[in-house]
Write a protein that binds this DNA or RNA. Sequence first.
DNA 1: ACCTGAACACCGTTCAAGT
DNA 2: ACCTGAACACCGTTCAAGT
Lengths: 207, 207
Amino acid sequence: MSSSPQGKGGRYHHGNLHEGLIRAAIELMEAGGVDALTLRAAARRAGVSPAAPYRHFEDKASLLAAVAYQGFEALLAEMTAALERSGDDPLRAMKVLGAAYVGFALKNPPLFRVMFGPEVANRERFPELEEIASATMILQAETLTRCQELGLIRPGSSLELGLAAWTTMHGCASLLLAQQIPAEMTEQEFIRIVGETLMSGLLLPTV
Amino acid sequence: MSSSPQGKGGRYHHGNLHEGLIRAAIELMEAGGVDALTLRAAARRAGVSPAAPYRHFEDKASLLAAVAYQGFEALLAEMTAALERSGDDPLRAMKVLGAAYVGFALKNPPLFRVMFGPEVANRERFPELEEIASATMILQAETLTRCQELGLIRPGSSLELGLAAWTTMHGCASLLLAQQIPAEMTEQEFIRIVGETLMSGLLLPTV
DNA sequence: ACCTGAACACCGTTCAAGT
DNA sequence: ACCTGAACACCGTTCAAGT
């Protein structure tokens, strides 16, 4: 009893307030959007005073960076899982990666926003974020290399082509979240069109 | 003298507080980023009390929507101007449109953010925003049609292909603003790679 | 070492009251 | 019709003080 982590009584030495605040922040965000994620509300939810978070995070941006980091971990996990389910066809793996990325954004709009939005601005302050973000890029570049080895994708730096593919996926997710696709088009149609264009390009193949 | 619009004395019946608040909001944003754009600060800058804006805007989101609208007007103007400078080559016009779009985002990060970010969320509330946003899409679709007529771009719905092109441009702008491109790559390289991939696609042309 | 309590300078929003 | 003044319920952040 005495070690119950969510007891009602005000308790000193929370033990794991750092993690508790991150979890509280994510729950607040999922329940009420980004606006609901305030430092004070996170403290309340964790059962501590408004000033307590400052023993664990320099400021609100630091907490948001920690939230973003967990978001990237989750995204990476979903992409890895999708990759494993995609079997041996690396072209199919490319599509599955894109679907996982866009699906993640659609399933967690506020989290996706925190991951890429300007709440965390000054990314130089949080180098660990750049590092884990680049991990998703590497995943894509590796898959792309496999396609190139089978002669399915044109030659060229897989890092550069992967970055281009990522850009398209990211634009897709961003426009969907901004509700900027025409009303007469479904999500699935939009995703299909963008994916096909990424693969085939716009130019008419000049025989 | 008596009609000086920025006189120091508190003045009733501002005359054009609606426009004044929008301008103040944009100036605040350009000077101090999105965080600096508060309703109270806009009111201060316009020389009125904190409650005055509520005679002209339902809430803060409405003011932001007005700011976003002016952003779309400016973007549309830059794209149109770029188009006129691009001469008769429609393929060049496509590139110029993309450059204008990405350039606009890089020149006005906070404005671009307000235009597409969730500050304005609930776009159903502001249908005039959807309308003007679609105007930029139409501009692109028309240019694309010209390319198709010359046999430069593959056949297909120009609206769909234009949407795909827009998605790539938007992803490009978003990742640049999120500082998510690898440090060892320059902006220009990144834009070039993404543009080339949009044009040529990823697939190896299967003879 | 870790947290509280109270405070400071802000917010967005509402509402009676002024002219 | 349009604005002010004062208020309410919040913020992020700081700092002395508690255990």
